[in-house]
Amino acid sequence: MNSETERFASAAIANAPFGFLIAGPDGAVLSQNRKSEEILGSLIGKNMGSIVSAFDVAGSCRDCLAGQKTIEVKEAAWNGKYLKFFFVPADGSACTVIVEDITEAKTVEKNREQFFMVASHDLRTPLAAIKASAELIMKAYSNDIQNENAKKLIANIDLASVRLIKIVSDFLEAPRLEAGRIAVTKERFDVAETIRKAVGDLAIIATNKGISLSYDAPRDPLPAVFADKEIVEQVIVNLIGNALKFTFQGGVTVSSAADDGMMRVRVTDTGVGIAEQDQQMLFGKFRQTDENFIGRGITQGSGLGLYISELLVGMIGGSVVLEKSDLGKGSTFVFAIPLAK
């Protein structure tokens, strides 16, 4: 490296978004950049091992230098933080230590685990009860039911519960879902058909509540979307389902329009609306660490479905947002789906 390149390298290290230190074989710090000072405090002239007690710093330096290999410390809890370290051999007598503060990622991970624990219980239990009840009726009381249509309807309940349990199981594979590793099969399709089907399936709920549910379909055919059909169907059903749940007079209207490369499906209700302070929590990533809050608050409201919807929508390159909500007047959610090119 010429002197100019060296100067650039030094500046880059000084301003790097990760902690960078140079330490001797016993862990004595010879140099450190700004970020490392932010994370660990000022360490120049001190032994890193005497400050960071979460693991054997001197041992890591020694192993790094003796083996001339990179030593990774994936996670060290220290001073209320979670840190990740790399010890990289610089030359025979000093090693470079790269440190990253992973506290936020750990918090998200912990909250995710809590969320899935709650979801696992709250969703699976009633589903298991539905399935077991339908199976018990078919197994033990089938002869008591004379009407063939009634038998078919019970079989439908069983089939639907199996399908729901499958969907829930897919959701609960949290790491795969959040890492975007679930199988997403994108195809071209007409979202109007999906909306009509969802409206048809959920019409019974509206009828039973004495409210309206309609699809304000455009006259001209809509351009095709390019997305995973099951995900789109699931999110639309969830949005309409939520709207119906919180609407007690008037009704729910679904509309669709294409603009700016996206198909926007609007679900508007004349329901109870969402208070401004609660709007912040709707799509929250469950950052709250109080388990009781999550258990009693979110899963009984609309947070769970919307959280899942947001995760799913992210996988198809779409978005779901609360466009507006007035307490006592109703809400409008917009689900944007990429159009086919």
Binding site: T125, P126, A128, A129, A132, S133, L136, A140
Partner: peptide, 12 residues
């Protein structure tokens, strides 16, 4: 809900 299910299963 689950108690009701289990009671039916075990009674059968």
């Amino acid at each position: 809900l689950m108690v009701s299910i289990y009671s039916q299963i075990f009674k059968l």
